[in-house]
Design a protein around this nucleic acid. Sequence first.
DNA 1: TTGTACGCGTTATCAG
DNA 2: CTGATAACGCGTACAA
Lengths: 335, 335
Amino acid sequence: MSADRARAPSIRDVARLAGVSHQTVSRVLNDHHSIRPETKAKVLDAIAVLDYRPNLAARALVTSRSNTLGILSATIGEFGPASSIAGIEEAARAEGYSVSTLNLPATTPEAIGAAVRQLVREHVDGIIVLAPQVRVFHVLRGMNSAVPFVTLQTASGFDGVSLAADQVAGARRVTEHLIGLGHVDILHLAGPQDWIEAESRMRGYLEALLDADLPTIPPVRGDWTADFGRFAGEELARRRDFTAVFAANDLMAIGLMHGFRSSGLRVPEDVSVVGFDDIPVAAHVFPTLTTVHQDFPALGRRAVQLLLAEIRGEAPPQFGPLESVLRVRESAIAR
Amino acid sequence: MSADRARAPSIRDVARLAGVSHQTVSRVLNDHHSIRPETKAKVLDAIAVLDYRPNLAARALVTSRSNTLGILSATIGEFGPASSIAGIEEAARAEGYSVSTLNLPATTPEAIGAAVRQLVREHVDGIIVLAPQVRVFHVLRGMNSAVPFVTLQTASGFDGVSLAADQVAGARRVTEHLIGLGHVDILHLAGPQDWIEAESRMRGYLEALLDADLPTIPPVRGDWTADFGRFAGEELARRRDFTAVFAANDLMAIGLMHGFRSSGLRVPEDVSVVGFDDIPVAAHVFPTLTTVHQDFPALGRRAVQLLLAEIRGEAPPQFGPLESVLRVRESAIAR
DNA sequence: TTGTACGCGTTATCAG
DNA sequence: CTGATAACGCGTACAA
C-alpha cells in the first residue's frame, strides 16, 4: 500500500516494455517511414498499455517549436473578435496546435511590445493579431521578430500577412442601399480614429457617396459603444441635416436609435438608421436593424490557414473575398 | 556580413559574460536568498547586455510546471463568458501565468474528456472551466486527474472549486421586483435543461413565488438565443395566462419582446418583460430592458485567485458574495 | 531497419 | 555564498 505517486511514463518506459530502444519509439511517434510493421505494432501496443503521452515541454525544448499559436487581442469583449477567436481555436486545434491568448489591456506601443515579447518568450510558433489599431502594425513591423504573424482586419499595405472581410465593400453596399432608398443627406457615425475597421467602413461610405455624386457630411467620431450612440443620437436630433445615418457598428446604431427615440425622432419614419456587424440582437431590436453581416469565425479559420502556411514555409493560400452580406430590415426605409 | 542567425543566448552565455557559473545565474533568476549583491549586479548586467530571456520550455521540462492556466469554455461567443475570460486573462497574466484556451465544440462526455486530456498534455498547472453544464462536472470529477480545476457558474455540491455570482439571489430579486409591481401570473422563460445557470435562475424565480404565495406556471425551456425568444413570444402571445415574463437571459428577453411586438402585444403595457445579464444593449433596446447585472470580469479574476491558491497549496481565499444588481428600466411596469 | 551517444536550457542536489 | 554534476524527456546525428 505504498503511496507511490507514479511519474508519467516516458519514452524509455515504452521502449523497455516493447523491447526496443527509445529511438524506435520516437520514430513510431513521428511516423518515420523506415520501420518494420511488427515493431511498430509492438511499440503502439506498449504505448497503449502504459497510456503514454509524449511530454510536450521536452519536445518543445529540443525542437524549439511549441506547436502553439498566440492570439493577441485588444477587444475580446466584443462580438466580432470573440467570434473570430472561436474560429481560430477550432482551426488551430484541428491542426494540432495549442492556442495561447493574450488580451491587451491598452494599446500603447509599450503594452503591445510587451505583449509580443511575452508571446515570443512562450515560444509560440506564430501570432494572430486582433488589435485593429493602425499603430499596432507599426509596432509589429518595427520589432521584426522572427515569429511570423498574421492580422485580422487590417489596412492596405500589409498584404500577405493580413486578412479581412471586405469591409469597404460592405460599407459601400449598405450606403448604396440607403441611396437606393432615396436618401441624399447621409451621415456617418464612425468608429474611433486609428482603428482600421473604422477607416475601412468610412472609406466604403465615402466611395458610395462620391460615386452617386452626393454631398458628404463630416462624419461624427464614436467609440463603438451603445452609450456613445445614444449620446450622439440626442445631440444629432437637434441638427436634422440628414435623413439617414450609417453607424459603423450595430452597438452604436442601437444606441443611436435610443437617442433619437428619447428625443422624439422616430426611426425609420423620421430618420433611417443602418449598422454594421449583424450582432445577434440586430434582428430583434425595435425597429429591426438593417446591417451588414460578416462571417467572423470563417475569418478566424482563414487566419490560421494563412499563418500555418507561413510557418511551414508553404505558399500562402489564396482566398476569395470573404463577402459581407447586406441584411435588409426595418430600420431604413424609403425617404 | 555573414548572415548568422544567432540563436538566443542561454543561461551559460550569461554566466560566461558575468564570470560566474550558470548556477549562480539561475539563482539570480529565481531570486534565491543567498547571493552576494555585487555578483547579483554583475549577472543582472550581463542579462541586460545579452537581452537574455529564460527558455520557458526548458524550465517547464525540469520543473514539470508550465506556468500556464487552461481555460475550458463551451460558450465563448456569449457575452458573459467572454467577459469572464477577459478577467481571467488579466489576472493570470498579472500573476505571471500564460493562458491556454480551448473552446469546446460539443459538450458530450467524450469531447469534454478529450479536451481535458489535451490540456493535461499541455501541462497546464490548473484549469478553469466555463462550461456550465451539469454533466461537465461529472466528467471532471470522474477523471480525477491531478490537475486542479475551478469552475465558474456551478451548482451546489462543488464547493471549494466553484465560484459564481449569486444567480439565485439575482433571479429572486428580479422576480420580487415583478411581484412588487403587482404581477401575479409570472411566467419563466428558462434556459436549457442541464445548464447550471438555467437551474439557478429558475430556482430564484421559484423561491420568490413560493415566498409570496403565488401560483407557479410551468416554465418554458429556451436555448438562450434571441431567435428562440422571438419564437416563444409568438407562441405565448396566444396564451395570455400571464402578465409578466422573466427570461433567463437578455438575449431571449429581447427576442421575446420582438415576438410579442410582432403578435400585437405591447411591452410593457400588455406584458412586462425582464431579463438577466445586462448585456451592453440592454439599456438601449426599446423598451429599455429591466435586468440583473453581473460583474463577469470580477468573477474571472476570482477564479484565478482561487485556482492559484489551490495550485500553491494555500488556503483558498474567502470571497464575499458577488452581488447581482437589479437594473430597473422600462420593460416592466406596474400591473 | 535499429541502436548509441549526445545535446537542448534549465533547475535541483550536494559539495566546498 | 558559489560551483560542479546530474537530471528532466525528447529528437537528431551517426553508426551498426
